[in-house]
């Protein structure tokens, strides 16, 4: 049957043939797809957030370690002077 004629004739399709919810099924599928996409995108955002928090924590720990290292070096350098000063003080 000619496709154009069929489209025109289906304008008079009996309502009972349209009671199957094809369109609502499509809409539900689309809704599910959208929610899946948004779920996965929120998961991606969560992962990104987690990654940046880990980065910040690593940065803080690294800077603390550097700071501790510097302090240790300073103390080590200052230690002999302190002992010298103490020795002089005692001997005097």
């Amino acid at each position: 049957m000619n496709e154009v004629k069929l489209i025109d004739m289906l304008s008079y399709l009996e309502p009972e043939l349209l009671e199957d919810d094809y369109i609502e099924k499509d809409m539900n599928k689309l809704k599910n797809l959208i929610s899946k996409i948004s779920e996965s995108s929120s998961l991606i955002t969560f992962n990104k957030g987690l990654r940046s928090i880990i980065k910040i924590i690593t940065f803080i720990i690294a800077s603390l370690l550097v700071l501790v290292g510097i302090i240790v070096i300073i103390i080590k350098k200052k230690k002999p002077k302190i002992t010298k000063k103490a020795f002089n003080f005692v001997t005097n």
């Binding site: 069929l6 289906l10 043939l17 349209l18 199957d20």
Partner: peptide, 27 residues
């Protein structure tokens, strides 16, 4: 003719009925 077409569509296998309605009713 319209009544005949409706009867023919009703008697189609459900898969073919769905394809015809989706393609030629909903385009």
């Amino acid at each position: 003719d319209l009544s005949k077409l409706n009867t023919l569509i009703k008697n189609l296998k459900s898969v073919d009925q769905e394809i015809i309605i989706r393609k030629y009713f909903y385009l």
